[in-house]
Design a protein around this nucleic acid. Structure first.
Length: 576
RNA sequence: CGGCUCGUAGCUCAGUUGGCAGAGCACGUGACUCUUAAUCAUGGGGUCGAGGGUUCGACCCCCUCCGAGCCGACCA
């Protein structure tokens, strides 16, 4: 075994692994382990007066998280899928005969924090009152050869928390093991999608899957990731949205379809944006955006109750209340509320002047819609903490939304804003094929002017709309953002298991050939490098006697069991 | 893309007008048959993110680079 580059603790664990094998114990057994209970069930169902039968013969498995060894008796804490429970080991119970190896050697010396074991025994309460399992027999299920971060806790205070965000995100397994609140946030993420899914299924809508690899990207304004299909010799894009495909299914006669869609946008990353993220898109025929607002309220309120048993959710310093009905403002009303200015009847040049007065950054290329959006973004969005619907957006920003039934220049669109961030976006969908084509053509003009995010004209989609799409309400709801709110998370990285990270710096690439070319064995070349001799020049300048000592010492200290080089060999390297 | 902060032992963090690299936990050895941040004794463990510069001497000062976090810009 090659121990070079390992820490002392890693070497000790590998030695323990070997010793287990020498004792005839397989540290990675193949057989099923007959777990019959979880830690939490024991804690929940323990009853001093009327002990359930099955707690007298429990079999559970998990990871050793702490150990307190007191000679011939010990306590440990076992962490399984549902929590932790204390284990009590006594030498003479583990080893009923003369041979005390299983306790003295295997348990005390060869097991470590982080190892996965299975135990059988019975539940009891210690003199200090803690519900525990008295272990009669234990089985090594997986030896851990990488030391765990040690997190301690007393009276609810966490000591030495594993908290460096970089390490946590790069090594999520460790994060999940030692930070229970991380695990719980992810469990809540799944509970959230389960709640949403059953809500939609109960209404009879069909969950579907549509292409992630798309020949044309559409349905949102964003830059895509681009890839290539070899057989078709064709450029494909990772979808930025699935809207255009779901609408084709509406045309096809499904009256309610939805998809939990992983979308990809090739843009900046921050604590609200990850390049891949999840949206739930829903399309329902014969409905409009007013109907959809009611559905969103009902759905999100139910999710909050399913997760927290309450419509109120603590989020940082705020308490968000999802109780229906939510406040509703048109975009014009919202701007009037937060700036005091009524822009509903302004001409473009008047609007431009108001924007300048408000110190909103605008430039000449912006149309009326963009300026309004800019004012809203600067003055209104961050003020909206409680869930609020903003309705009736300028037409320029919304090429897939139906024109407003009564106000010129607007579309039937709403967003829900919560905690100062958009959580969903919905329209009465545009189903007029002539209008839709014109809107796409306007987008093409924008693209020609250099707007990288303008939508592409999708003939296949237009063809579908031309067949005839029923009036339809559509919704996209950001699952990551909603999860952040529901789990009191400040960063999207806390609700995505494996957030995108820059590649870690490569471990220094050492080309041992510079030494092996001198006739040095590879293993010694690596040790020389580890010992700080990183170039031939350094080697040549070294004292041969000292170098020999270093190598032999290294061999001994790390128990490598190598044949030491002779002093002559070492001076031979230096003089070669 | 810009500003600020950070990178030292497995983990959390100290550190020094610039003078042999520290603590707690973890780990090794010994003691202890109801502990719980177990305790007591004792011992090991470091390319101080990488590279360059200044200096007799750099973890520390300067430059470049890499990675991370926060804020802002851009963007949904």
């Amino acid at each position: 075994m090659d121990y070079i580059g390992l820490s002392e603790q890693e070497i000790i664990r590998r030695e323990a692994l070997k010793e287990l094998q020498t004792l005839g114990i397989n540290p990675y057994p193949a057989a099923e382990y007959p777990v019959n209970i979880f830690s939490k069930d024991i804690l929940d169902r323990f009853d001093d007066n009327n002990m359930p039968e099955d707690l007298l013969n429990v079999c559970l498995a998990g990871r050793i998280m702490t150990r307190r060894i007191m000679g011939n008796a010990s306590f440990a804490e076992l962490q399984d899928n549902k929590g932790r429970i204390q284990l009590y080991f006594r030498r003479d119970d583990i080893c009923t005969g003369e041979d005390k190896t299983m306790y003295n050697t295997v348990f005390k010396r060869l097991l470590d924090i982080g190892d996965i074991i299975g135990v059988t025994g019975y539940a009891f309460r210690t003199q200090m009152g803690e519900i525990s399992v008295h272990v009669k027999e234990f089985t090594v299920l997986s030896k851990s050869i990488h030391p765990l971060p040690i997190v301690k806790e007393k009276d609810g205070v966490i000591y030495d928390a594993f908290s460096d965000p970089e390490q946590r995100y790069r090594n999520r397994s460790l994060d999940l093991i030692v930070n229970p609140q991380v695990k719980s946030a992810f469990i809540n993420r799944t509970r959230l999608t389960n709640s949403m899914r059953s809500f939609l299924n109960d209404k009879g809508y069909l969950e579907v899957e549509t292409p992630i690899l798309q020949p044309l990207y559409g349905g949102a304004a964003a830059r895509p990731f681009k890839t290539h299909h070899n057989t078709l010799n064709q450029t494909l894009y990772l979808r930025i949205a699935n809207e255009l495909y779901l609408k084709r299914l509406i045309v096809g006669g499904f009256d309610g379809v939805y998809e939990f869609a992983k979308d990809f946008r090739n843009e900046g990353m921050d604590r609200f944006h990850n390049p891949e993220f999840t949206q739930m898109e829903l399309y329902v025929a014969y409905k409009d955006y007013n109907w959809m607002m009611n559905l969103v309220e009902e759905m999100v309120e139910r999710i909050s109750i399913d997760l927290h048993g309450d419509t109120k959710v603590q989020l940082g310093e705020n308490v968000i209340d999802f109780k229906r009905p939510w406040k509703r403002y048109t975009m014009y009303e919202a701007i009037q509320k937060f700036t005091g200015i009524d822009i509903s009847n302004l001409s473009e040049s008047e609007l431009r002047q108001e924007a300048r007065n408000l110190k909103v950054e605008i430039d000449d290329s912006m149309g009326k819609g963009k300026i309004i959006d800019e004012i809203f973004g600067t003055y209104c969005e961050k003020e909206l903490i409680q869930p609020t619907f903003i309705t009736d957006y300028p037409i320029e920003m919304s090429p897939l939304a139906k024109k407003h039934r009564s106000v010129d220049g607007l579309v039937e669109r709403f967003e829900a804003i919560c905690n100062g961030k958009e959580i969903c976006n919905a329209y009465s969908e545009l189903n007029d094929p002539i209008d839709q084509r014109e809107r796409f053509e306007q987008q093409l003009l924008l693209a020609k002017r250099g707007d990288e995010e303008a939508m592409m004209l999708d003939e296949d989609f237009l063809k579908a709309i031309e067949i005839g799409m029923p009036p339809t309400a559509g919704l996209g709801i950001g699952i990551d953002r909603l999860t952040m709110i529901m789990t009191n998370s400040t960063s999207i990285q806390d609700v995505i298991f494996f957030p995108q990270m820059r590649p870690e710096k490569k471990a220094e690439t050492f080309d041992e050939s510079v030494f092996t070319e001198l006739g040095i064995e590879e293993v010694w070349a690596k040790i020389l490098f580890k010992a700080g001799y990183t170039s031939v020049k350094m080697l040549k300048e070294a004292n041969p006697g000292k170098l020999h000592q270093i190598l032999c010492g290294w061999n001994k200290k790390n128990k490598l069991g190598l044949q030491n080089p002779t002093p002559d060999q070492v001076s031979g390297w230096i003089n070669s």
